[in-house]
Amino acid sequence: MTATSNLQELQAIARVLHNLLLDYPSESSLQQLVDDQIAQQWPVLTDSPLNKQGKAALALFATKWDSSQINQMKLDYGQLFFGPGEPKAMLWGSVYMGEQQIINDTSTVELMRFYQQFGISFELKYKQPVDHLALFYAVIDQLLEQMMADPKNNVAKEALIILLQQHMLPWAGRCLDLAIEHAETDLYKGVALLAKDFQSSLATTLNVVPMPMRLFR
Rank of each mutant, 00 (worst) to 15 (best):
M1L: 13
M1S: 13
M1T: 14
T4C: 01
S5P: 00
I13S: 07
A14C: 09
V16P: 00
N19V: 10
N19Y: 04
L20H: 06
L20S: 08
L21T: 09
P25W: 15
Q31W: 12
Q31N: 15
Q32P: 00
V34Y: 11
D35K: 14
Q37N: 13
I38Q: 04
I38H: 00
Q40E: 10
P43V: 12
V44N: 00
L45T: 06
T46R: 02
T46D: 12
S48E: 11
S48W: 06
P49L: 09
P49G: 05
L50H: 07
L50T: 04
K52E: 14
Q53M: 09
K55L: 06
A56K: 13
A59Q: 13
L60V: 10
L60H: 11
F61W: 11
F61N: 01
S67L: 08
S67A: 11
S68G: 04
S68E: 15
N71F: 13
Q72N: 05
Q72A: 06
Q72C: 05
M73G: 00
M73Q: 14
L80C: 08
G83Y: 00
G85T: 07
G85Q: 07
G85R: 08
E86H: 06
E86R: 13
E86P: 04
P87S: 11
P87Q: 06
P87H: 11
P87V: 11
K88M: 15
A89E: 12
W92N: 05
W92A: 08
S94D: 01
S94R: 03
V95K: 01
V95Q: 01
M97D: 04
Q100K: 12
Q101C: 12
I102C: 02
N104L: 15
D105W: 12
D105M: 10
T106S: 10
S107M: 06
S107A: 06
T108N: 10
V109H: 10
V109T: 14
E110H: 02
M112I: 15
F114M: 13
Q117M: 12
S121W: 04
Y126I: 01
K127F: 09
Q128I: 13
P129A: 12
P129Q: 05
V130W: 02
D131C: 02
D131N: 04
D131K: 02
H132R: 06
L133G: 00
L133R: 03
A134W: 11
V139G: 01
V139T: 10
Q142K: 09
Q146N: 07
M147S: 04
D150T: 13
N154S: 05
V155M: 12
E158K: 12
L160P: 03
I162P: 00
L163E: 03
L163M: 08
L164P: 02
L164N: 04
Q165Y: 01
M168Y: 07
G173F: 14
L176V: 11
L178M: 13
H182R: 07
A183Q: 06
E184D: 07
L187R: 05
Y188M: 06
K189V: 05
K189Y: 11
G190S: 03
V191Y: 03
V191E: 03
A192D: 06
A192G: 04
A192Q: 08
L194D: 09
A195K: 01
K196R: 11
K196C: 07
K196P: 02
L202Y: 10
L202C: 07
L202N: 05
A203N: 03
N207M: 02
P212R: 05
L215D: 03
